[in-house]
Amino acid sequence: MGHRRLERWCPGVTDELVRDGARLGEGEDVRFYVDGRLKAPVPEARTLGATRPFLEVRLRRRVEPLGNVRFVRAEATDLVLRGGRVTGVVMDDPADDGLLDADLLVDATGRSSRLGEWLGRHGWGEAPSTG
């Protein structure tokens, strides 16, 4: 699923990644394990094998030229909520008055996420977590 979306958003990226060293697995060559158990093969499976830094560098090159994307080096310290929804983040970056408004926010910090703390600060219950 993720691979198809990646290709939809960045056409031709699969060929580019494979050319740069990623491994492409298709059909019966792809093995899926869940809880250590091999699952049945999926004939239409198609997956890329690459490290996170490998993907990040190449995807960033693709995204940087887009006019509606901006990279900010700052630490998020809280959420901005308006009308019952998250509309931005509070940052430690005085160049942006400490606020960054956005239509879409992604918390990709993993286990160190402070999202639950921030939601609680604004009266929301902590989101359920698995893992």
Rank of each mutant, 00 (worst) to 15 (best):
R114L: 15
R31K: 09
L38R: 14
R58K: 02
E75D: 08
L119G: 04
S113L: 07
V13E: 01
P41R: 12
T47D: 09
W118Q: 01
E7C: 07
G36A: 12
R73C: 08
R70K: 15
E56W: 08
G120I: 01
S129N: 02
D97V: 05
V72Q: 10
R23E: 14
G2Q: 07
L17S: 01
R111A: 15
G2E: 09
R73N: 14
T51F: 04
R62N: 03
L99C: 03
D35R: 11
D35Q: 07
G116S: 13
R82N: 08
F54Q: 05
P65S: 01
L59E: 02
L81F: 10
L66I: 00
G67E: 09
D35G: 05
T47M: 13
G49E: 12
L105A: 09
V86C: 15
P11N: 10
A127Q: 12
E16I: 13
G98W: 04
G98E: 05
R58A: 00
L115N: 01
T130A: 14
A40V: 07
M91C: 10
T130R: 14
A95Y: 10
R82Y: 06
R4S: 15
L119A: 02
G83I: 00
L104H: 09
V72E: 13
T51C: 03
R82D: 15
R4L: 15
A127S: 06
V42C: 11
V90D: 03
E56F: 06
T109E: 12
A40N: 11
H122S: 04
L115P: 00
V80I: 15
T51H: 07
R114Y: 04
L66E: 04
G120C: 04
R111C: 05
E44R: 11
W124D: 00
W9F: 10
V106L: 15
E28T: 14
A108T: 06
E75K: 15
T51Q: 07
G12E: 07
